[in-house]
Design a binder for these strands. Structure first.
Lengths: 127, 127
DNA sequence: CTATTATATAAATAATACTTTATATAATAG
DNA sequence: CTATTATATAAAGTATTATTTATATAATAG
C-alpha cells in the first residue's frame, strides 16, 4: 500500500505536474527545467527526485548534466501520466513552455559546441 | 490542475485507502467504518470528507446516520478506484474486514429493529 | 592545478496536512 | 421536553512535506 501512496503523492503537487507536462516534449536537463519553471535549482532537484523515486522519471548523467525523461516502463504509471497530460490544458502552462523555448533558442554558447561530441553538449545554453 | 491535484492527494493517505477498500463491499455508515478501522470518529469523518470533496464518495443521510458509498459516476475516478482496489491485496486489510464483520454480526439492538421502517435502522449495531 | 559549472544534498524554516480533544448540531428515543 | 446517539466541525497540537539558503561534489574548461 505504501508504494501506491507514494505513486499518488508524487502526482499531488503543482511543480511536479508542471515538470511532467514539460517532459511530455522529451528529455530535458535540470537547467532547462529550472529556466522553464523559473524556480530555484534545489527546488527543481527536490521534485525531480520525488518523481524519480515514485517511478515516473528516469535520469541519465552526461558529463556535468543530468537529463530527466519520463519513465514509461510501468503500465499503470504510464496510464497515470497520460491522464495527467491530457487533463492539463496546453494554455495552463504556456508560460513554462514559452520560457523553455526562449531558453533553448537563446543559447549562443551551444551553437559553438554543436560540432563537439554529444558528451560535451547540453540541450540548453549550458557551457 | 487544482482538481487533478486534489484527486491524487485524496488517494495519498493510508486511512483513506482503507476506507475505499472497506466500501468496496458496499455502503456503510460512519459508525461501521469507525468500528472497522478502530480509530476515533472525528478522524474518520475528516477522511470521509476529503474523499467526498475529491469526488470519490457520495453520502446519504438517513435519520441520525450518514451512509457513505463509492461514487462511480466519473470514469477517471472510477478507474483510479479500481486501480487502488486491485492493488491492495485482500490480506493487507484483513483486520479491518474482520472488525467490520464482528461489528455487523454482534448487533443485538439491530435485530430488534429489523421489523422497523428502514428510516430507523442502521447497518451496524447503532440504536 | 584552479576556477567554473551543473547538480545534489543538508540544515533550517515555512507551509500543509493529519490527529486529537472538545464541542456543536440534528435526529429521535423516552 | 430532556437525554442520548450519530456525525460534523472547530481549535489546538503534531507530523509531514515543501522551500530556501548554504554547501558539497563531480565534471571540465582554461
Amino acid at each position: 500500500m505504501d508504494e501506491l501512496i507514494k505513486t499518488f503523492k508524487a502526482l499531488s503537487e503543482d511543480t511536479r505536474l508542471r515538470i511532467i507536462k514539460l517532459l511530455e516534449g522529451g528529455e530535458l536537463c535540470v537547467c532547462d527545467i529550472v529556466a522553464a519553471l523559473d524556480i530555484i535549482q534545489p527546488k527543481v532537484s527536490f521534485h525531480l527526485n520525488v518523481l524519480k523515486e515514485a517511478g515516473f522519471l528516469k535520469d541519465r548523467k552526461q558529463g556535468r548534466w543530468t537529463h530527466y525523461r519520463i519513465d514509461d516502463t510501468d503500465f499503470f504509471r504510464r496510464f497515470l501520466l497520460v491522464s495527467v497530460l491530457e487533463r492539463i490544458p496546453k494554455e495552463a502552462l504556456a508560460a513554462d513552455r514559452k520560457r523553455l523555448e526562449t531558453f533553448m533558442e537563446d543559447k549562443p554558447v551551444r551553437d559553438n559546441l554543436v560540432s563537439l561530441p554529444e558528451k560535451k553538449r547540453c540541450a540548453g545554453r549550458c557551457r
